[in-house]
Amino acid sequence: MITLTCEEVKVNFSAVFSSEKLMRQLATNLHIGKSVFCYQSVGSTNDVAHRFAKDGARSGTIIIAEFQTMGRGRNAKKWVAQRGENIIASLILRPNIPLERLTHLPLLASLSVAQAIEEIVGIRTEIKWPNDVLIRRKKVAGVLVETSAQAGVVDYVVVGIGLNVNQAQFPDDLAQQATSLFLETGVVYDQTTLLVSLMRFLDANYARLKSGNTESILSMWRGYCDMFGKHITFYQGDSRREGIAIDIDERGFLRVEIEQKEERLSQAEIQTIRY
């Protein structure tokens, strides 16, 4: 039983997104999008998703907001998005698969975003390992996957996705790194159409993950990644390192050649890619 706070009930009616419309457009046999909650404004859709999941929300539930007052990325970094211009969504999944296979989820999410953009916008994006979606080296979408485990058992996973759709301006400090579909094409896109496409790709890719067909996810993901064979610099904690990105391994870890020795990284902040 999901409980909404008074504030959430008041802001529950989004002018941009409609739960009904979204659910109608999604085929009934999809796992993802079985329940859709649309808000004008929330603190962060990931936080709402965590609360709903703890209250027992079913797998496939999606929380969408026009605006986040406390949007965040990895390590509580701020995620800035203008009101009503973008897609901010969090998905609750209960995968019931071994924890080590969950590391495919960030790849799966970025792949689905890239596929949806390609279908609706017709642009081939690039993915920067593991899950940033870029157009001409600027970030157009980000993913934040969060979960919690007790004694190695995961109850649910929250997949947060931020996609810059019609935002025309970014704050100065972000303008060099961030972009939107509108800025890249000059076209204003219907967010619902994009969202429906995104959910369909998420659904298809999630079905692959569930059935153990991770190789197809990895191979499609590779098709969008143009880092391989290139010199990269990256941070691990405070230490700056460099090497040649080779590929990803079966877990999705980044294989990097550093001083003639191969390392497999589960975590790295890629700083630069020398094209």
């Binding site: 990895r74 924890l99 969950l102 590391t103 495919h104 989820l105 960030p106 790849l107 593991p130 899950n131 993913v143 934040l144 996957v145 969060e146 979960t147 919690s148 485990a149 007790q150 995961v154 877990r251 999705g252 870890f253 589960s266 975590q267």
Partner: peptide, 9 residues
């Protein structure tokens, strides 16, 4: 953290 998946233990 692995693969940008943040796992609270």
């Amino acid at each position: 953290e692995a693969m940008k998946l943040m796992n609270e233990i």
